[in-house]
Structure formats: C-alpha cells, structure tokens
C-alpha cells in the first residue's frame, strides 16, 4: 500500500469519526434534496420532467460551504493539535501527504454525492431520464469539488485556525464563482478570460452532458496549481519551522 493510500484512508476514516462531517453532510443532503424535490415535482404547468439540472445547478452553491467545511480541518487541525510538525518529520514526502489528504477529502465528497443517487433512480423509475447529463453532472460535481478542495486545502495550510481557513476558503471560492459576472461588468475580453478561470463555468459545461477536453484540462491544471502551491507552503514551513 503506497503512503498516499495510507494517508487517504486515514483522512477518509477521520471524516466519519468527526461529527462535523455528519452535520455538514446531513445538511447538504437534507437541504439539497428538499430544494430539488420541491421543484422537480411541481407540475402545475407543463408537467414535471425527469431532469436533474435543478439539482446540479445547486451544487456550486452548496459546495461553496460544504467543501471548505471539509477542507478547513485538513491542515489547520494538524497545526492546532500540534501534529503538523510531527507529520513533517515523518519519512513521507509532501506530495504523498498532500495527495492523501486531498483524495481523502474528495472521496468523502464522492460518498456524499453517492447518497444522492436515489434522485436519478426515482426520476428514471417514473420518467425517461437522459443519463448522459446525469453522468456529466456527477462527474462535473466531483471535478468541481476537487477544484474547491484543492483551494481549500491550500488555504488550510496557510493558517492555524479552522474558522479562518473556512472563511478564507469561502471568500476565495465566492470570488471565483462570481468572477464571470465581474468580468462581464467590466469588459468583454475580461469576461471571456474570467470565464476561463471560473470552475463553475466549466462545471456547467460538463453538467449539461458534454465532456470537453478543455474543461478536463482546466480542472486538472487548477487542482495541480493549488496542490503544488500547498507543497510549496509545506516546504517553506519545513525549512523555516
């Protein structure tokens, strides 16, 4: 078993041992489910349709709180408990540490998303569901969570306080989410550039059921950037104590 896998398992398990994961996860499932099913079954007009767009449109908003709540503890808790320095002395490379924590957090989000699988199953039981956008939506959701998580993990490595990590992550993600709107208000070329930088725009593209190489590259590069920055911080701390 590689070191990354060992750390991944440890992190993943630790989520299930912490009440915060149940609170945040439970709230995500309850509120998300309520919002979605209140609307999808509303058929006074043309009739309710077997579509998951309503749910996937909510994901960027829900993840804005959910993912930082999961990522805030990844480094900040280690620092608070004093295990951070200990961890750095272990014969484990920064890369393994970061990837392990990142994948552990991502796996937990995947599990939470898996709990929403009854939604498409219900729709498929009572209507003709197009599974293409559903697959795209879930894949996009995972990639979106990965991008949020990589940023959250990086911010968590900068601070000792979990709440500050949470607030900083939410604020940074909010800026990223609203980036296209800012750009549109300024100039067309900026709007285009800012759209390229916004994880939400790429998520929307995938969630409609189109797998575009450019979107996949974006998430790969975005996650790579923040994980690498995280590694820089670790190295910096290793050297400077």
């Amino acid at each position: 078993m590689s070191k990354t896998t060992v750390i991944l398992k440890r992190e993943f398990r630790s989520y299930f041992l912490s009440p915060i994961a149940y609170v945040v996860g439970g709230l995500f499932l309850a509120i998300g489910g309520w919002f979605y099913f209140s609307r999808v079954f509303f058929d006074f007009g043309a009739g309710a349709e077997a579509r998951m767009d309503g749910f996937f449109n909510l994901l960027p908003l829900f993840f804005l709180v959910l993912v930082p709540a999961l990522s805030m503890r990844l480094w900040a808790e280690e620092k608070k408990l004093g295990t951070f320095e200990l961890l750095l002395t272990f014969p484990v490379r920064s890369r393994d540490l970061i990837l392990g924590k990142f994948l552990g957090g991502l796996l937990f989000v995947v599990v939470l998303l898996a709990f929403t699988l009854p939604y498409p199953m219900t729709l498929a039981a009572y209507g003709k569901l197009d599974w293409g956008p559903v697959i795209g939506g879930y894949l996009g959701g995972i990639l979106l969570a990965a991008s949020y998580l990589s940023l959250g993990l990086f911010i968590s490595s900068l601070t000792r306080d979990q709440i500050i990590a949470l607030l900083l992550s939410v604020a940074s993600l909010l800026i990223l989410v609203l980036l296209p709107q800012f750009g549109a208000a300024m100039s067309p070329s900026l709007a285009e550039a800012f759209k390229l930088l916004s994880p939400v725009e790429h998520f929307r593209s995938i969630a409609r059921g189109v797998l575009d190489l450019r979107d996949l590259i974006f998430y790969f590069v975005f996650c790579g950037l923040f994980l690498y920055l995280n590694a820089l911080v670790l190295e910096f701390k290793k050297r400077n104590g």
């Binding site: 189109v210 797998l211 190489l213």
Partner: peptide, 9 residues
C-alpha cells in the same frame, strides 16, 4: 482544443 464527447441521449 475542441475535443468533446456529447453524452446526451
């Protein structure tokens, strides 16, 4: 780079 796969039915 426009390589894409349309998953819709």
């Amino acid at each position: 780079w426009a390589f894409r796969k349309d998953l819709t039915e």
